[in-house]
Design a protein around this nucleic acid. Structure first.
Length: 878
DNA sequence: CTAGTCACG
DNA sequence: ACGTACGTGACTAGC
């Protein structure tokens, strides 16, 4: 038996939109409704295995259904812009999948579905209707199934109705369903119904009389009198309402069921559009990658010494640029992929030591003779090619792409090709999956493709990206800040930081014994064994079994976060025990034990610094994260004693003092705040004095602390709510603080407002050095999202400028150390702090360099000040 | 693979 | 009325 799937397009799209969080693709296109729609229909197709399908849409917006009775329209909210833009997108996706779309002026989607369902029934099809709208239940019969999906946090569940299920659930047949709706009305559909008749009365009447006509024919017998009166006075309304509620079954559609045959849902077109929309989870439905890429270079494999020498002698001559990808793993070079024209990629393999040396020598001297080199990830390539800061013709394409749009999550060859060449390429994962690189990879065609893309894409986009940077006035930023930073980060990773494994082990043992005691105590208090690390189990124990107050907060259960527990810590001794347990297990698992896993054979940790992650321009640190080693609490801070310099060295640590507020004082031009910094006064105390209107020498410590919180709040993009939460004061008080703050620092207020205005106008905000941060949230129709955008617009220029400044300081310090032939090396950057492993005989000169380069990194209206100290470990150096 | 929690600036 | 501070990364539990 043939089976057809009939989908209520707008209704499912609407369900999907509200069921999924707001997702956007790389272009900022909203995609959540489209993705949700696809997930729902794929799920149903899996279950039903239909051979025919179509999607029906209303021609006009479904917001104002039944326009002919427009007097009754208007109870629905207008469709949000984020959803509206997904309607044409959805149709585009369906068209790409060769799914039939049916829409016709004058007909609602449900009329179309009703008509086709009867067509299908007459032709002996099994029919499945999918809609989020219960109105369609009137279409259910013995062979027509109506399925209503519900998207919940836990996943999608679907209610299923044949005619008998409608009777069971509602006590009326599908046909009676229409009469019932006519009686009770439906505000969301703008069906008036009869005044005074709701669901209960309508159901009672239907059971007694069977149809609206029968009720109207026997009005005199209807009870109670009030209902009889309403019906008598509103007979027209009742009839009209029924008419409105009735789905047409006889639309004139010039379409046949044959045209709705499902074929080739997964083809090149749909593949491309899924890729464009970022529906990576759906790509696996395409099976093996078959699409023909627009970019199709001739790949030549070079394996012998003669071939490699030939390449160097012939191909490398007379070219002015090259795209490179060194193929290596775990410090071993396997080969090199080189793009020398739009269509030619050479893959060099089987490199022996001598070939390797000749190759790198050749490449380095070529660029020093003017050849441009485009590399996707330069920092990674530096372990093979010894370029340095002076090699200005070497480009990092990943970093360039990051500057042009810092909001993307990756800058892989396929992402860059998509953004700048409009080309859809298979990703690394799609090409080689989890297959590991080894010597045999060179014979493998998909690996060859991968190597080729990684060299060719940078070659193809290099000049284009530089032009974009010029146009956006970011080339100087790229060239003079970001590129030197690439080399600096490489040096820092390469150098690493020495860690005392034994110190970490001892610390861990100490923690573990206390953790064990706490565990015993907590289980004792709870009265039964449970996993304290499970927020779910913990929540149940605390708030159900033990009956503590605290209430729900998260969607999956109770929140057990610090701020919740802090509030009830005096209610029961289990709470402080849990807080301490949490603190200690965190220290143990993430730091004491976690860090030891990263110690290399040289006794040092060589983490990774990422330059293309943050939206603001900051560096991030991974494997391990060396930018969040404990500091605030003494117990955690002790971890820093395990970070030690090599023998004969000490640590010199310097951090900027209030760099973000100084940046703000400079950028805003606020004289009051600038004067505070120019006079070297305590900025938080000064702020307290102004805001709380007391002489500076009478500012209490509480007032200073509050003023400090306000200063932080300003930098984050102030809101009265956020400040009140942080300080534990009322929102009104917080608003008062903010008001007084802005009265004191008038130009700061106008500066922050200006950021938001400019972001609205340009779509981006900029740092002092021209770095951009897009703020698409400001265009949202959602209040919360928009507010977030406003805070981002206020915060990013401040945080980003501070990030620019420390990058400058960082590479200047690094370069100066190298240039002077010193043994000391920069090893860490923690946003406003630099750590230099310093030879004991170089302490004075290192301090001098750090002071000069950090304080002189930017020319501002206020001085940049630093705190600097030294020690035999990181703990003592801070 | 996501959510919750918590470490840092 | 909406329901929050800005920027990160690692670990654990539990699907």
């Amino acid at each position: 038996m043939k089976k057809i799937l009939l989908i209520d397009g707008h209704s499912i799209l609407n369900r999907a939109f509200y069921g999924l969080p707001d997702l956007t693709n790389y272009e900022g296109l909203h995609t959540n409704a489209v993705l949700g729609f696809l997930n729902i229909i794929f799920k149903i197709m899996d279950e039903e295995k239909p051979d025919h399908m179509c999607v029906a849409f209303d021609v006009h917006e479904p917001t104002f259904r039944h326009l002919k009775y427009s007097a009754y329209k208007g109870t629905r909210k207008p469709m949000p812009e984020e959803l509206r833009e997904q309607v044409p997108l959805m149709k585009e996706v369906l068209t790409a999948m060769h799914v039939t779309i049916v829409e016709k002026g004058g007909y609602e989607a449900d009329d179309i579905i009703g008509t086709i369902s009867r067509m299908a029934e007459r032709n002996g099809y099994a029919t499945v209707i999918v809609s989020g709208d219960r109105d369609l239940l009137q279409l259910a019969t013995d062979t027509i199934l109506v399925r209503i999906p519900k998207t919940k946090a836990s996943g999608t569940t679907i209610e299923n109705y044949y005619a008998k299920d409608v009777v069971e659930a509602y006590g009326v047949t599908p046909v009676q369903f229409i009469d019932m709706k006519g009686l009770m009305g439906d505000t969301s559909d703008n069906i008036p119904g009869v005044p005074g008749i709701g669901e209960k009365t309508a159901a009672k009447l239907m059971i007694e009389y069977g149809s609206m006509e029968n009720i109207l024919d026997h009005l005199d017998t209807v009870k109670p009198p009030r209902v009889q009166k309403n019906l008598t006075e509103n007979m027209d309304l009742a009839v009209m309402s029924k008419d409105l509620a009735t789905i047409k079954l006889d639309c004139e559609l010039d379409i046949s069921l044959d045209e709705m045959t499902i074929e080739s849902l997964f083809n090149d077109d749909s593949y491309k559009i899924f890729k464009r929309l970022g529906f990576n989870s759906l790509l696996k439905k395409f099976g093996t990658v078959t699409e023909t890429a627009e970019i199709d270079p001739v790949i030549t494999l070079l394996e012998t010494t003669e071939q490699i020498d030939g390449f160097l002698a012939d191909k490398m001559k007379n070219i002015d640029k090259i795209g490179l990808y060194p193929i290596w793993k775990d410090g071993t070079l396997f080969g090199l992929s080189a793009a020398i024209s739009d269509k030619e990629v050479y893959i060099l393999s089987n490199l022996n030591g001598m070939e390797h040396d000749r190759l790198t020598e050749n490449i380095v001297s070529a660029t020093r003779n003017g050849m441009q080199i485009d590399i996707l990830d330069l920092k990674e390539a530096l372990s093979v090619f010894p370029f340095d800061e002076s090699d200005t013709k070497v480009h990092d394409i990943g970093v360039a792409a990051y500057l042009l749009n810092p909001m993307e999550d990756v800058y892989s060859y396929d992402a860059v090709a998509r953004d700048y060449l409009g080309a859809t390429l298979p990703s690394e994962k799609e090409l080689v999956g989890k297959d590991e690189l080894n010597l045999f990879s060179f014979a493998n065609e998909t690996f060859q493709k991968l190597f080729a893309y990684k060299a060719l894409i940078p070659y193809l986009v290099g000049d284009l990206l530089m032009e974009h940077l010029e146009k956006q006035e970011m080339f100087t930023l790229y060239n003079e800040i970001e590129m030197p930073t690439v080399y600096t980060l490489y040096d820092m990773e390469h150098r690493g930081i020495r860690v005392d494994r034994k110190a970490l082990d001892d610390y861990s043992v100490k923690l573990q014994s206390r953790i064990d005691d706490l565990h015993t105590d907590i289980i004792g208090y709870a009265g039964k064994e449970f996993n304290i690390n499970s927020p779910k189990q913990l929540g149940v124990i605390l708030f159900e079994d033990m009956g503590l107050s605290g209430g729900k907060k998260t969607k999956t259960g109770y929140s057990t976060s610090v701020d919740v527990l802090e509030k009830i810590k005096n209610d029961h001794p289990i709470i402080p025990a849990i807080l301490e347990y949490r603190q200690l297990t965190k220290l143990n698992s993430t730091y004491a034990q976690g860090l030891t896993a990263y110690i290399s054979e040289d006794g040092r940790i060589h983490g990774t610094f990422n330059q293309t992650i943050t939206a603001t321009g900051r560096i991030s640190s991974t494997d391990p994260n060396l930018q969040n080693i404990p500091m605030k609490l003494e117990l955690g801070r002790l971890i820093r004693k395990a970070f030690i310099p090599e023998d004969g060295y000490v640590f010199v640590d310097a951090d900027y003092s209030q760099i973000e507020l100084r940046v703000l004082a400079h950028l805003s031009g606020d004289q009051v705040m600038q004067n505070a910094f120019l006079n070297h006064v305590d900025i938080h105390a000064t702020t307290a004095s102004e805001v709380f209107d007391v002489p500076i020498d009478q500012v209490t410590s509480l007032q200073r602390r509050n003023a400090k919180a306000v200063n932080f709040g300003i930098v984050y993009g102030i809101s009265a709510f956020g400040l009140s939460e942080d300080l534990g004061i009322s929102r009104k008080e917080a608003a008062d603080y903010i008001e007084k703050y802005f009265a004191t620092y008038k130009n700061i207020k106008s500066f922050l407002d200006r950021q938001v205005e400019e972001a609205k106008a340009d779509g981006v905000v900029r740092t002092m050095f021209g770095r951009i941060r897009p703020v698409p949230e400001l265009r949202s129709s959602n209040f919360m999202t928009r507010s977030f955008g406003e805070r981002v617009a206020m915060n990013s220029p401040i945080q980003g400028t501070a990030a620019d400044i420390i990058k400058i300081a960082m590479f200047r310090v690094n370069m100066e150390l190298k240039k002077r032939g010193l043994k000391s090396r920069l090893i860490l950057q923690i946003h406003d702090e630099l750590l230099v492993e310093t030879a004991k005989d170089e302490i004075d000169i290192v301090k001098e360099i750090m002071e000069k380069e950090m304080m002189g990194a930017a020319d501002m209206a206020v001085p940049l000040e630093i705190g600097i100290s030294e020690g035999d470990n990181w703990y003592d150096a801070k």
